[in-house]
Design a binder for these strands. Structure first.
Lengths: 212, 212
DNA sequence: ATTTAAAAATAACAATGTTAAGTTAACGAC
DNA sequence: GTCGTTAACTTAACATTGTTATTTTTAAAT
């Protein structure tokens, strides 16, 4: 069966196929519930063959997450062309939240599960490349809005603003993803919570004149 | 060896011992990494005996988390005696964040790991009892501040305010806990991020006059 | 044609959650 | 007292998992 000697390109095809199968299962069943055997079966290999392409399950997850961060960045890229810095910022944020809420397992996998710290030295993502690095996009978007003077004058560090907004939006997504079904809490409708969070951020960060 | 016929009180002692051992290990090693055998050894029983007290690992985790939610509520209780509604709200929030950041594994176990939804009908926590239910404390604290008129007049739903503030603070804690060591991100100092988040919430929610 | 080694599969291992099958000894009935 | 009965517990055992060791297959190199 093994048609020996795969070109590096052919190997990449298999690698990608494994990652796609893994992502599909991770997203639908959660990372924990997915076995290497299941991934292998999905892609038509034996379980042990996966280890020829990924050293272990953690590395496979890491690779999938990396690829998805790039995808998120490419998705967010569409908002970067908005010329008005304020609108660009708002759309960017909305896009991010929408991604998290419509792809909960995706989001959980990327930002809520404990995985190996992402080492820029070994990542497949090119740091600071706005095509791939969603975090650097965020920094850029906030920084340009900051230069445009939309934030309160007391706020002097765009990076800090960015990290605060990210945290706020992340909290919204994370609680929804983890506790939406918890009968304990009488959640307000999701849209109302999104709206309230956006509103709080705007009133908390922007100049008064900006959001009349 | 088995000294037959334990009173219900004695059984409760064993149950608690198991939960304490489990919590200790969960917190130091993460829920995933802890085996039933390890918990059993810690408490001096065989692994299978744990199943006489908890139907499975998920239920054990659920019981531990429930107990810790009560502990959190009791810890937060100290702030409830502050007479000024605004100060009470602020201290309550600060207390919560401090808990999350100084007990990261605890916090992760309680709010960031996937576990069985908490069913009020079967929980050991008494819902709406301010001694035990931290969420109801939050609602109360925000509602009384709302009645005191500290929030912007456009904000008409104290529950929505509470859920928004919780999400914001949770995002702060969650990102710190999961991504603090990620070399990708040039995190601002933790205290600065806490301060910035608190400030954003206040400016975003409070009447102008409240925070001069 | 024979050798070599890449690519894959099969067999196998240790660890884990969990269940089934014993084992021990305190209590009640006589 | 002794004799079952049964609660409390232990030891065996199982299925599943991630992973490694071994073996098979087969395209290319000689």
């Amino acid at each position: 069966m093994p048609p020996k000697v795969k070109t590096s390109a052919e190997k990449q095809v298999v690698r990608t196929a494994i990652m796609d199968a893994a992502r599909e299962l991770f997203i639908h069943q959660g990372v924990e519930a997915v076995t290497m055997r299941a991934v292998a079966q999905q892609v038509g290999y034996s379980a042990t063959s996966l280890y020829l392409y990924f050293s272990d399950k953690d590395q496979l997850l890491r690779a999938v997450v990396d690829a998805d961060v790039i995808k998120l960045a490419q998705s967010l890229k569409s908002t970067l062309s908005i010329s008005d810095p304020l609108q660009r910022f708002l759309q960017f944020g909305q896009h991010y939240v929408q991604f998290g809420l419509t792809n909960p397992n995706h989001y959980r996998m990327m930002f809520m599960t404990q995985h190996l710290p992402c080492d820029p030295a070994f990542s497949s993502i090119e740091q600071n490349n706005p095509e791939q690095d969603a975090y650097s996009q965020l920094i850029d978007v906030v920084t340009s809005a900051w230069h445009a003077g939309v934030f309160k004058p007391t706020l002097t560090d765009p990076v800090l603003i960015a990290q605060t907004v990210w945290a706020a939006m992340h909290g919204l997504c994370a609680l929804q993803i983890n506790l939406a079904d918890d009968a304990w809490i009488n959640w307000r409708p999701l849209e109302a919570r999104v709206q309230a969070m956006v509103s709080m951020c705007m009133h908390g960060l922007m100049k008064e004149t900006t959001h009349e």
